[in-house]
């Protein structure tokens, strides 16, 4: 359950709208059920009153929409950003993808988001989800009493290792308690590194074989902002939608992750939206972990204007041939 209420946020937005400070509000809109929330643009206090929602399912990172809206709309756009979303926002500013003048960024303290897919796994026919301090009461078609799932069990993957220690690059911050980080985000990466190559190969072969090449991971990614994606270029010889074979799957996922390496803020949207639940963040985190350990710690989106590691170098950098020995030494 979020500490800050939807009322607080929509009230804030409504007053700015009414005062003429902003013309649009980019937020989350409620759906048919308690969990199917859609990013949406609100233009009036009435719309906010009717449809605005802020709860544990307001997972969507809204920063990427600002590229589109700052280009197509005239007038200031209020956007609600969770602490982790602000990294994406700041990275987009660094890359000059957003017209900052058109944005009124409001930071929202977040108490951690819930993963609808995790809740769904053990509940058929969810009719309602009520949020409590400790977790969720899941009402279904098939049991009279609601099932309880704790906040920790239902937590969204990215929130397990929350990096939301601070909001950055904001116009205004709503006061409130922020979720405290827990797990080391590189645990799973290290676990995979410690497997044998055969084990790793089979792990990824199994995960990537489910890929249906829907491109949702790419399309949702706030770092994937090319005007024309290499995968959409028919002359590149890359499959952009055919799940042709395991080579193409690896090719797509390696290149997708590589193209955002050094710019990926680890916002976790790719894994969240994957219809086949492929742990795509483990590819991105591998690059982040390698960058951190080879070239020094770097958090994309933390400092506006910072130089991404892949467009930078040091004359004393590690040689590719030394990478494995060096890392094995670190892990030992």
């Amino acid at each position: 359950m979020q500490k800050v209420t939807a009322k607080t946020l929509s009230g804030k937005a409504a007053s700015l709208l009414n005062a003429g400070e902003v013309k649009y509000v980019l937020g989350w809109k409620k759906g048919e059920f308690d969990y199917d929330i859609t990013p949406a643009l609100f233009e009036s206090a009435e719309e906010l009153e009717k449809d605005f929602v802020w709860n544990d399912f307001s997972c969507a990172n809204l920063s990427k929409y600002l590229i589109k809206y700052t280009r197509s709309l005239s007038g200031k756009i209020l956007v609600f950003l969770k602490p982790c979303d602000t990294f994406s926002f700041n990275q987009l500013l660094t890359e000059h993808r957003i017209d900052r003048q058109k944005v009124y960024a409001v930071g929202v303290p977040c108490s951690g988001m819930a993963d609808e897919k995790k809740i769904r796994e053990n509940a058929d026919g969810i009719t309602a989800i009520s949020e409590t301090e400790e977790g969720y009461l899941v009402h279904t078609l098939y049991s009279d009493a609601p099932a309880f799932i704790s906040k920790e069990e239902a937590l969204l993957e990215k929130c397990l290792s929350c990096k939301g220690w601070a909001h950055i690059a904001l116009d205004e911050q709503i006061e409130g308690e922020v979720f405290a980080p827990s797990a080391d985000r590189f645990d799973q990466v290290k676990a995979l590194e410690n497997m044998t190559p055969d084990e790793r190969y089979h792990f990824w072969q199994n995960e990537l074989s489910r890929c249906i090449r829907c491109n949702a991971c790419r399309d949702v990614c706030p770092a994937c902002t090319c005007e024309k994606c290499v995968f959409d270029n028919p002359n590149s010889g890359v499959e952009n939608k055919a799940a042709a074979n395991s080579f193409e799957e690896k090719m797509f996922h390696i290149i997708r992750a590589f193209h955002v390496a050094g710019r990926c803020t680890d916002c976790g949207e790719c894994s969240r939206v994957c219809p086949q639940k492929i742990p795509l963040h483990l590819l991105n985190r591998k690059f982040i972990n390698d960058i951190d350990s080879f070239y020094g710690e770097y958090q994309a989106g933390l400092d506006e204007g910072s130089r991404a590691p892949l467009v930078d170098y040091d004359t004393g950098d590690l040689e590719p041939s030394q990478v494995f020995d060096w890392r094995d030494g670190q892990n030992a």
Binding site: P197, A257, F258, D290, F294, V323, F324, R327
Partner: peptide
Amino acid sequence: ALLFSMLDY
């Protein structure tokens, strides 16, 4: 360095 490390991964 990053690509080869990823392939190994």
